[in-house]
């Protein structure tokens, strides 16, 4: 727990490489053990969904938290991954694993395209344009119903395979393994990136644009890198989602999904990567725990999101820190 807390609260680059690696491997080991505890396929399904959300949210944290680029089209990149995989496997007959990687590439290209109109924009205008981009990708998918199925979506998408392992009747252990591997790869990619020189210059650009530019950081290149890097595993996550669910629908472009994932990023506390991952687990499990509330569930979730945002400006991380600080204070007081 202590280790977890340090990892969350430590500013990027503060914790040493070795310590972070140890924490990472420990965390990964714990997650890999979970199927031993949760043996039913329903619990495993929840975990797989949490891993997918965690990938999408933590990659969003790269552009939003580290880059300070308010990309509200992030979920469109996920959606593009979903549809790219569906079309590549179903229409073009591509091998599912190749299509999985190709979907990441397609999402990356899409991110590069969105970067062009927002290169010279600031703050609110970036939100508006990227949001518009997301909605228009959806409109285009709806209107090109001949190949995309329009509002009906696409069904019977080929799934992934592991040699001749039976992916259907394995209690979801196969997909669990793939999801966890993808999440691990994505997290390593993000952490290595933000701890690198590139990561440092991304943050420099966010914190003081004029100064960074005067020191030779290129705004154009940096924004391009930030968005493209945040897109690849988001697209892969979309492709995996399509392979896992075996269908694609335009719901992935909806406001409600975007709201939930964005709250994962903000609740986790921006600029940490791990925060978004942890918040994704917390929110997914929490949403499941409330399944009994039926129609009230989204309303309760909304109220809780608002409350956390009002009370803890820095999200769950701030909440954990406050609790930790309070505890520490109480422990220290007697001495």
């Amino acid at each position: 727990m202590t280790d977890m807390n340090k990892r969350v609260s430590g500013a990027p680059g503060r914790t040493s490489w070795q310590r972070e690696a140890v924490g990472f491997v420990l965390g990964l080991a714990v997650l890999a053990m979970l199927p031993l505890v949760f043996t039913d396929s329903y619990s495993r399904h929840i975990l797989i969904m949490a891993f997918i959300y965690a990938m999408v949210a933590s990659n969003w944290d790269l552009s939003l938290g580290y880059g300070g680029v308010f990309n509200f089209g992030h979920l469109a990149l996920f959606g593009i991954g979903v549809y790219a995989y569906a079309l590549l496997t179903k229409l073009a007959g591509m091998d599912p694993w190749v299509a999985l990687v190709a979907s990441g590439v397609v999402a990356t290209l899409a991110a590069v395209i969105v970067t062009i109109p927002i290169l010279r924009l600031k703050g609110i205008y970036i939100i508006l344009v990227t949001f518009g981009f997301a909605q228009l990708v959806m409109q285009i998918i709806i209107s090109q119903s001949d190949i995309t199925g329009g509002t009906q979506g696409i069904v019977r998408i080929p799934g992934l395979y592991i040699f001749d392992h039976n992916m259907v009747r394995d209690g979801k252990i196969g997909y669990f393994g793939i999801a966890l591997t993808l999440l691990a790869l994505s997290t390593i990619f993000l952490r290595v990136l933000v701890r690198s020189r590139i990561g440092a210059s991304i943050v420099a650009l966010r914190d003081n644009e004029e100064y960074a530019i005067s020191r030779g950081v290129s705004l154009v290149r940096q924004r391009m890198i930030t968005l493209a890097a945040s897109a690849f595993f988001t697209g892969v996550a979309g492709a995996f989602y399509a392979a896992y669910q075996r269908n694609a629908s335009i719901d992935v472009f909806g406001m409600s999904l975007a709201t939930i994932v964005l709250s994962m990023v903000l609740l986790g506390g921006t600029g940490t990567i791990y925060g978004a991952v942890i918040a994704s687990f917390v929110l997914t499990v929490f949403a499941e725990a409330m399944a009994d509330f039926g129609a009230w569930r989204p309303m309760i979730t909304a109220v809780l999101i608002i409350l956390v945002m009002l009370v803890y400006p820095s999200g769950l991380v701030g909440m954990i820190q406050a609790a930790w600080g309070g505890l520490g204070g109480r422990l220290r007081r007697p001495t």
Binding site: S256, T259, L262, I305, L310
Partner: peptide, 8 residues
Amino acid sequence: ITTLAAGS
């Protein structure tokens, strides 16, 4: 995020 949540 708060207006989105309130909207939802």
